[in-house]
Design a protein around this nucleic acid. Structure first.
Length: 192
DNA sequence: ATATGGATTGCCT
DNA sequence: GGCAATCCATATT
């Protein structure tokens, strides 16, 4: 499994959000591969998208969203949770795809240890849950996913999948935009 | 220096 | 379904 390369990410954020469905996120830690199929994503743009962290321009937190595509953007929210994004678009154009849910493939023993009170089905069925299961924190922000032990690889081509579009979740602005995408009938999607 | 609210989760009714 | 928890980034004074 080779990492997807920069040109894949260096495109329109919505297109990347859709095509990321069915691909495989992998993180190597201490000789173990933790991985899962991406089953739910959301697209966030820059100016023009009031729900995006990048809406008002560059800040210390969001600056990676304005940098090269294919780099991770991890932020901390609600005092408890980390969320994983992958930067999109050409450099200087803000954009990122939030990874909202995964279907575990490997490393489930590690995931269960990190989420001791979770049923297997709740291991990675939400943006804060999957970062906890993978052990992803802000230290994993700004990592180049095209050349590290943290990457996304080809899985099932999104062309062959039934993908549903819906409004994004948990935001207070731009609620009408249909920028959430998920695999139909997949039990690991955060909300059907 | 202070105020506000959040790209969520889990527990309680 | 409702809501508290909990910390930090950002905006405002």
């Amino acid at each position: 499994m080779r990492p997807l390369e920069r040109p894949f990410y260096e495109r329109n954020t919505q297109v990347v959000a859709i095509e990321l469905i069915g691909k495989v996120l992998t993180l190597h830690q201490n000789g173990t591969a933790i991985s899962g199929v991406i089953v739910e994503t959301e697209a966030y743009f820059g100016s023009g998208d009031p729900a995006s962290h990048a809406y008002r321009g560059v800040t210390p937190r969001n600056r990676v969203m304005f940098g090269p595509a294919g780099v991770s953007y991890v932020y901390f929210t609600y005092g408890n949770h980390h969320c994983l994004n992958i930067v999109t678009e050409r450099e200087d154009t803000a954009g990122a795809v939030l990874i909202r849910a995964l279907e575990p493939i490997s490393g489930m023993d590690v995931m269960r240890k990190r989420r001791p009170n979770a049923q297997d089905q709740e291991l990675t069925n939400g943006p804060g849950k999957l970062t906890q299961a993978f052990g992803i924190t802000r230290e994993h922000s700004g990592v180049d996913l095209t050349k590290s032990s943290f990457f996304v690889a080809e899985g099932t081509d999104s062309r062959y999948l039934r993908i549903q579009a819906a409004p994004r979740i948990g935001i207070s602005r731009a609620k009408e935009k249909v920028l959430r995408f998920y695999l139909m009938d997949n039990p690991f999607v955060s909300t059907l």
